[in-house]
Amino acid sequence: MGRRLLITVLQMLITVFVASLVLFALIRLAPGDPAKLLIGRTMEIAWDAAAYETTLNELREEMGLNGSVFSQYVSWIGSLLQLDLGTSFYTDRSVAAEIGERLPSTLLLAGTALIIQTVIGLLVGILSAVHSGTWFDTVVRLLCVGLASVPGFVIGLVLLLVLAVQMGVYEISSQAALSRLWLPALTMGLLGAPQVVRVVRANLLSELGQVYIQSALSRGLGSTRAVWHAMRNVLLPTITLMGLSFTSYISGAVVIESVFAWPGLGEYALNGILHKDYPALQGYALVMVLSVVVIHLMVEALYVWLDPRMMRRKKEAAHE
């Protein structure tokens, strides 16, 4: 069991390593000399050619751009390990510090959205599985297909228009205040709920048809208790989905953050694109990859803890 988890960790380290190579290569491919870009923003002395040349060379030396590509990569990784993500071209501040400031508000938003999505999804999913085939089930089904077809920003904009502009119950600002959290979180939660409803409904339905539930029911177990028993087995696929949702919330938050002017990582990345701020984007992408991998690892560990059989099943699947 521990060995299996160790292999997973190793695989993830490889993934992160390759991802860092890809990111490094992408930024190196970028048109334009990073040192020139940095200089262009901090000092406007381009007319003095000699001074410009010296400053450029000093800067290139300082940024480690004069060595070979390999040594550049090594020094980049070295500074990454010291949590140094470089300096933003635009604000001239440490990228790690700026990301550190914004990460909590993105995590707060994604976490709240995840809770909302899970609560709605579990409730509606259980109800529509228990009442499958009724009008309620049909309405839920239609709502799910419909909601899955609407872009998130459209729902966000409409909610903003109605609740903030017309009814005035939501404050428009660019602060990450707790009083402003509920609407973006609700929007994201609503958008994610249909997936949970589907997974819970389908798995619960197939679980309720199993022999152990049927025999328990025939021995006089109440139907609420039966659902409770069956839910234990529905939890695992739900947790997988929650992990996937959380990663897509952290990265996909960029749209909702932009609509509600929520100062999170997504907004930071958008500013980075606007100002061609490569270090900021590189840092953002790295943090995203790391969070995907870490969340995946957490889900995997949770699986082992919740269902020890999982490891054996996985092994068999791997040998298929």
């Binding site: 996909g252 990345a269 958008l270 992408a285």
Partner: peptide, 16 residues
């Protein structure tokens, strides 16, 4: 799979 599509698209948009 470790690169969320949104992130990848944003990096591409910034670079190119």
């Amino acid at each position: 799979l470790a690169f969320p599509f949104m992130v990848f698209a944003m990096v591409i948009a910034a670079l190119f």
